[in-house]
Design a protein around this nucleic acid. Structure first.
Lengths: 337, 337
DNA sequence: CCCCTCGGCTGAACCGGTCCAGTGACCCTC
DNA sequence: GAGGGTCACTGGACCGGTTCAGCCGAGGGG
């Protein structure tokens, strides 16, 4: 059962292919009566435009790409990506754009994917995530000439359109809140040090702590996994000057840290306050529920998709600073005992 | 800067388009010398085949679709989908197939997506997940004539190619293990009752409990969220005949249940044993670490992708029963006090 | 009444590949 | 040395749309 084409419609309607094309695309050149007849036939025989044929005429591919460059076992852990994707999706599907997804092993493979997608005309643009310091992808993508929106701070985005949130403000809010509660020894269990947002949060953390005249404010870097989060927490809590509050860079490490504290017979929040970055159902089911830095991740994705679509349409896409993460206090933070 | 086409290569090599096509596709019809020359030129100018042009010749779209039909906030929670996707991906990208992803609100929208993808020639096939009892998508997809692999039990897959795991065996293994430990009152906190795998697990649970002559073995249905998992656990633990072991249908509910038990001053595993379905880093960071039913989810996705690619290639794709989930015991299960 | 305009439509080129029929050139063979 | 076969390659149709130039007829203006 062949898929119907405009030639089939043309034959049935007794007009030319050209007329059918005009009718179906809402362009002038056919009378209303003919247009209605053609639309009725198209509808009846279940015609759909063949995107390949459309794309061949220099038109858009009506798809954008997203390549994720973290090992599968890390990806699954964090709700972040799934939420981000659903936000991107919502925006794309409203405009009938498809999302091409690929999980890659490293940046080289990721660039290979972009080159292929772009070269084959599969996508009209892409969204770059997890920016690194001096990210090699930025100049390479710039050279490729593909429309790209970057999820990350403008300082690392080169000439690409950035969509970002003010992590520094969030760090400041958190530390100031903890200090207001009476904490003086605050630690940070951070993610991968080569990620640009890790660096930004690190610097903000250092600056705020110094500005408030706090004692040692150690930062430990991890790979975002529960195991490393647990190990980092164990180390921090075993030190002679153990912190009374720890800020974690994601939820799974925060939960792991919570478990470690309880294992070490420390009461949370009396002996240790815990803050997690990014809210997730997980943070609310553990006891005590975790104080978190909340972001609207789907909105974040949606905004990136909007900017990308604008870019593809040739509209000048301006950088977008999204809402800064907000501190949501729950049971895991309190004045130190 | 226009993308190079085979016409450009032909001009530079001084041959016809046809010869270039043969050379680039490894087909006979050109001498090795000419082929080498053409490949060198193609490589030099960075030529990539335009998939639209290829697809137009009745060739494959070289993409498969996956539509996920759960609200975004549920999707993010479970690592399942991300792991599944990365497994599917690994198989697809090895064959240079792309994955089209869409998050939809309901089955009707999902069918709309499939109709569009298939009608537009965007995909060569799709993978159907989260089968329901009497799933309306099955007959509709059959009618569409699109190659489809179903992740779910053959009994619900109609004429579509199923890839599934023996959940019944996993349920049996779990209950028998708990009974061997000395448990007599075992409960199950299940997922959405309309899902076919929930029904299968429910039935297996009932059968095994009855077969072993156990007392009341209640089943509570939820929407997979931590909140409902917590509520279900609270209800079960408040009943006069409270269970000494609970088997949860996912990890987040198991963690929520664990928290509820600890809140109610019940010791896990002394007063209550907890088993989670699907291992995830989460299960290992909480205290005690959870006994789980482990599946190799990426492999599951990879197998589905393999079957789908076979189907697309016109090879008869046989149903595939994947490995049954294995019980991995950790600290959350023990003989009842 | 004739010319001009314009709406409505046709026919064909075009996008970038694939693939088939056909054409020489060359070699082998009887 | 004529006939047949193979090899290497060419030219062009084709896929399913879009788009443009051009054509025809009706209606309006002078």
């Amino acid at each position: 059962m062949r898929r119907p084409t405009i030639a089939d419609i043309a034959r049935q309607a007794g007009v030319s292919k050209g007329a059918v094309s005009y009718a179906l695309n809402g362009q002038p050149g056919v009378s209303e009566a003919t247009r209605a007849r053609i639309l009725a036939i198209a509808n009846e025989i279940g015609w759909r435009p063949n995107i390949a044929a459309r794309a061949l005429n220099g038109a858009r591919a009506h798809a954008v790409g997203l390549a994720l460059c973290r090992p599968a076992r890390f990806l699954g852990v964090e709700p972040f990506f799934m939420e981000l994707i659903s936000g991107i999706e919502a925006e794309l599907s409203a405009r009938s754009y498809a999302l091409l997804l690929q999980v890659v092993g490293d940046h080289e493979a990721e660039m290979g994917v972009y080159r292929r997608w772009w070269g084959e005309g599969r996508v009209d643009g892409a969204i770059l995530v997890d920016l690194h310091l001096d990210d090699p992808r930025v100049p390479q993508v710039e050279e490729l000439g593909m429309p790209v929106v970057v999820l990350g701070h403008p300082s690392a985005a080169g000439s690409l359109v950035p969509v970002w949130a003010d992590d520094s403000a969030a760090v400041r809010e958190t530390v100031e809140y903890l200090v207001a509660l009476g904490h003086r020894r605050i630690a940070r269990v951070a993610g991968l040090p080569q990620l640009s947002h890790t660096a930004i949060r690190d610097r903000a953390f250092g600056d705020v702590c110094a500005g408030l005249g706090l004692d040692a404010c150690p930062i430990v870097h991890t790979d975002y996994t529960g195991e490393e989060g647990a190990r980092a927490t164990r180390r921090l809590l075993s030190s002679p000057e153990r912190p009374t509050a720890i800020v974690f860079d994601n939820d799974i490490m925060a939960v792991a840290g919570l478990s470690v504290a309880q294992e070490m017979r420390l009461d949370v929040p009396a002996d240790l306050s815990v803050v997690a970055w990014d809210d997730s159902p997980l943070c609310q089911v553990v006891r005590p529920p975790l104080t978190v830095l909340t972001r609207d991740i789907p909105a974040y994705g949606a905004h990136a998709a909007q900017r990308l679509l604008a870019l593809i349409d040739g509209v000048e896409a301006r950088p977008l600073e999204d809402e800064a993460p907000r501190l949501t206090t729950r049971g895991s933070t309190a004045p130190p005992a």
